[in-house]
Amino acid sequence: MQLYRESGNPMARGVSSFGRLTKINNSGLVVTVVLMVVGMTIAFPYFLTPINIETMAMGFIQEAIMALGMTIVIISGGIDLSVSAVLPFTAIIIGLLFNRQVATPLAIVLSLVLATLIGVVNGVMINRLRAHPFIVTLATLTAVKGVSLVITEGGTISGFPQEFYFIGQGRVLGIPFPVLLFVVLAVLFSHLLRNHKFFQQVYFVGGNQRAARLSGINVEGLRLVIYAINSFLAGLAGIITASQYVSANTGFGLGSELRVITTVIIGGASLSGGKGSIGGTIWGIIFLAIIANAFVLSGAPTYWSDVVYGGMLLIAVLLEEYMRADRKALRRRNWRDFLTSG
């Protein structure tokens, strides 16, 4: 007895993980980025020089690293505002540890553990209080920022050991270490998100939380890990920042939470969850980095960059909405095709 049959080679789709990696969902964004690169190269021959590319990459490196974690959070249907507080907090903590003569590796581990713990606290509160992640992470944002201020009393912490400079300023094979670190992390998380059992659950939780719970997914535990990872990455960004500036203060990462969220959204993730990819986010990062660079190269006042970011964000979602309306119509028709007897 056959109820449903479909022609075509069923194995053609997505079997090889390489095929999945190269499959690009946000072709509109990619085309835009390519056009921008072409345009920029014509307008500014300097654009594609290694030095400019490095400037571009390093100018956005904190946001880029945080965007990886935020992508996962947003796919799961959540949001995390606290990253912009975790970043300076971690930088300040590691500064404190250095001031107390803690060895560099230990200081890094300790401060990252602390950063991760903030994510765990976020996760526990969202789970326990069943509160909206926006509010919970807004609370941790405020509180952690406050703690940073209490520690530094508004001042700057300095006195970092020489060997710590490598993290933010070192080079491997001529490539800045933070960029290398980002590439490794991006490949790792992209692979995990596509092919790892644990991270696949993120899409289920974001797509239909109720269904995820009913099929036995431990939604609470998963959420804990997601927010912990996100906080960990924000902490990493904080350590890199501290190493770059060889100091730490509460002004680090100001407003970065919204820039990071913007990147992820432009990269094709949906705030309602269940949708998004690391690949898309990377294109979003490149897109915004090029815009920022355009201001630098053209000598236009950088004040304008906020206006352009905001405008780009709105255009991106308007386009997405336009395409979604299309899909919705399609789905409704499918439902209508289904007939049951009265």
Partner: peptide, 27 residues
């Protein structure tokens, strides 16, 4: 009208309005 997530719309407006204020005053 366009049924866009209010978080994103007002996030964009936040950046645009603040940016415009900075542009107008040059800081």
């Amino acid at each position: 009208n366009f049924k866009i997530n209010p978080f994103i719309v007002t996030l964009g407006m936040m950046a645009i309005a603040r940016g415009a204020a900075v542009v107008l005053t040059s800081g």
